[in-house]
Lab assay of single mutants.
Amino acid sequence: KPRVVLAPEEKEALKRAYQQKPYPSPKTIEDLATQLNLKTSTVINWFHNYRSRIRR
């Protein structure tokens, strides 16, 4: 699969959402995906990867 490249404003929106709730509910994930015009799997993976990046 080709890698999804996020626009800077999409990254900022995801980071703001992460600061509010690092483990978002499925509803929140769905809303974010719709709002940013991304797949839910992309949003889920971003949160998973961002949490692991923060832990390093």
Rank of each mutant, 00 (worst) to 15 (best):
E30F: 09
W46K: 00
E9G: 07
P24L: 08
T28L: 10
K21W: 11
A17Q: 11
Q35E: 04
K21D: 15
P8S: 06
N45A: 08
I54V: 15
D31A: 07
N37H: 11
R56K: 13
K27N: 14
R53S: 12
V4M: 12
E9T: 12
L6T: 09
S25V: 09
P2C: 12
E12D: 12
K15M: 13
W46E: 00
I29P: 00
R53F: 04
K11Y: 04
S25K: 09
A13S: 03
R16A: 10
V4R: 05
N37Y: 10
P26I: 03
H48R: 13
F47Y: 01
R16D: 05
T34S: 12
Y18N: 02
E30Y: 12
R53M: 12
K15W: 05
N45G: 07
H48M: 05
K1Y: 12
K11D: 01
Q20N: 02
I44V: 11
A33V: 13
T28D: 15
Y50E: 14
V4F: 08
Y23V: 11
E10Y: 01
P22F: 02
P24V: 03
R56A: 12
Q19L: 09
E10K: 11
T34V: 07
T34N: 02
A7G: 13
N49Y: 14
A33I: 12
V5C: 02
K15D: 11
P24C: 01
N45I: 03
L32E: 00
E9D: 02
Y23T: 10
Y18M: 05
S25Q: 05
S52F: 04
R3A: 04
P22W: 07
E10S: 02
A33N: 04
K39Y: 10
E10I: 15
I44T: 07
P26V: 10
N37F: 01
P2W: 01
P26N: 11
R53L: 09
A17E: 04
E9L: 02
E10V: 14
E9R: 07
P22A: 07
T34E: 10
N49D: 05
A33C: 03
A7L: 04
Y50Q: 12
P2I: 15
P8N: 10
E30K: 13
Y18P: 06
R56M: 13
I29M: 13
K39H: 09
V5L: 07
P2R: 11
E30R: 10
L14Q: 02
R51A: 11
T40Q: 08
L32P: 02
N49V: 02
R16M: 12
P2D: 15
P22Q: 11
P24N: 01
W46L: 01
E30C: 06
L36R: 02
P26A: 11
R3S: 06
E12N: 02
I29R: 05
R55V: 09
P24T: 06
E9Y: 01
L38N: 10
V5H: 03
A7Q: 15
E9P: 05
R51G: 07
P2T: 15
V5N: 10
P2K: 13
E9A: 12
T40V: 13
Y50F: 09
R56V: 01
T28C: 10
S41Q: 13
R51N: 04
R3H: 06
N49F: 03
L32M: 11
T40R: 08
D31F: 11
Y50R: 04
K11M: 12
K11P: 03
F47N: 08
K1V: 05
V43H: 00
K27D: 05
K27M: 07
Q20D: 14
N45P: 00
A7E: 08
V4S: 11
Q19F: 12
L36M: 15
L38M: 15
K21M: 14
L14P: 08
Y23R: 10
V5K: 10
K21F: 05
A33G: 06
L14I: 07
Q20E: 15
N45H: 06
E30T: 13
P24S: 05
A33S: 08
Y23H: 06
